[in-house]
Amino acid sequence: MRHPRLRAAAAVLATLAFTASGCGHSQPSAAPRPDDPGIGHIHGLGVDPADGAIYIAGHFGLFKVKSVETAERVAGRIQDHMGFTVTGPGTFLASGHPGDLQAGSPHLGLIRSTDSGRTWITVSESGTADFHALQPAGDKLYAFDSQTRRVRSSTDGGRTWMPGAEEDVIDLAASAAEPNRLYATTQGGLRVSTDGGTSFADVRDAPLLSHVDSPSKGVLVGSDADGRVRTSKDAGRTWQAGGALPGQAAAFAAVDGNRLLASTEDGTIYESRNGGDDFTVVFRPTAS
């Protein structure tokens, strides 16, 4: 029987999974204007190598952090960004839903920007796929499609896809050094695939994580259901506890082994420069 504390943690992760499905809409604001819907629930975080700027992928748009008090909506566009990842200087991948649901399909499929989010082009699956997690791994790209509930993989930048296992995925992690080794956080615990997402198995004795990243071969770093950073340097066999966020992470990204970004449900963005031992606030929303 699962320990009561683990049951409670699993319930928290279930809430996170429900929110990630697009059903939860906490709405911290990036500006105090009454007509601005704000950022909404935060689905992703990233750093643009072109200028080092932090980007927030939110329910109501993509935002560039300008200061602790200010996040600027990119191109003035209101658009729901579910899956989001930075793949190179000025180059982003995302998925989600258009701001105007009456304009066409509610699913964007995979979209790509090469100018830091100012413009986007459709890569594939417009009208059919809603990728809630996107994970590049060298020449491979992984995604979790909320519509089919399957992990999918691509070797041509997301133009065509191979179906993988059906999993209850919250987050995905993989390293370019091991492109066929894919980790997934789920409500039931951390799982791993060694065949490119075709099948998964439990990672024994792993903490119950809401998010995980793999910044290098054999290294995993994530946040547990209580917001504490957990790190493994041996592919998940053993884990070390680090510092803690003030609550469970709503989004989490390991820029590298030392630099981590995380958001909490109130929309505050935290950054660590020492692998999660401690965090500082880099953006705090203003209530609308």
Rank of each mutant, 00 (worst) to 15 (best):
R181C: 07
V151W: 12
F144R: 01
F200G: 06
S175C: 10
Y142A: 04
E178M: 03
Y142G: 10
Q187R: 15
E167N: 02
V151E: 08
Q147M: 13
W161T: 12
D195Y: 03
A201V: 13
R159T: 15
A201R: 14
D202V: 13
T194A: 11
T148W: 03
D171M: 07
G189Q: 12
Y142P: 00
E167F: 06
T186S: 10
G188V: 02
S153F: 00
A173C: 08
T155H: 11
A174G: 09
A201C: 06
T160C: 08
S193W: 10
S153C: 02
Q187T: 15
S175I: 00
A177L: 05
A174S: 11
Y183A: 03
I170Q: 14
Q147C: 01
G164I: 07
M162P: 00
T198L: 13
T185C: 09
T198R: 14
F144K: 02
N180V: 08
G188S: 14
T148P: 12
Q187L: 14
A176P: 09
E167H: 01
P179E: 07
S199E: 04
R191W: 05
G196V: 11
S153H: 03
D156T: 10
T198D: 12
R149A: 15
Y183I: 03
F144V: 02
M162Y: 04
D145F: 00
D171C: 09
A165T: 10
E178I: 01
N180H: 06
L190R: 04
D168C: 03
L190N: 06
G164H: 08
F144Q: 02
T160I: 12
E166F: 00
P163N: 15
T160A: 12
D202G: 07
F200T: 01
A165D: 05
D156A: 02
D156H: 10
G164D: 12
A143I: 00
S193G: 03
I170L: 15
T185F: 09
G196W: 04
V169E: 06
T185V: 10
R150N: 13
V151M: 10
A165K: 12
Q187P: 00
I170K: 13
I170P: 03
S146Y: 06
E166C: 05
P179F: 04
E178D: 14
D195M: 02
R181M: 05
T198Y: 11
S154W: 01
V169S: 05
V151S: 05
N180M: 13
D145E: 06
D171A: 13
R152I: 15
A184V: 05
D168F: 02
R181L: 08
S175K: 00
V151G: 07
P179K: 00
F144C: 00
F200E: 08
G197H: 09
S175N: 06
T186W: 13
G164W: 05
L172C: 09
R181V: 15
G189H: 08
G189L: 07
R149H: 11
V169K: 01
A201G: 13
P179G: 02
A201I: 13
E178H: 00
S175W: 05
V151L: 12
S193A: 07
G158I: 02
T185S: 14
R181Y: 00
G188A: 15
A174C: 07
D202K: 14
R159H: 14
A173R: 01
R152C: 07
F200W: 10
G189W: 14
D195K: 02
E167K: 04
P163V: 12
G197Y: 06
I170T: 12
V192N: 03
V192G: 06
M162W: 02
S193C: 01
A177H: 09
G197W: 04
G158F: 01
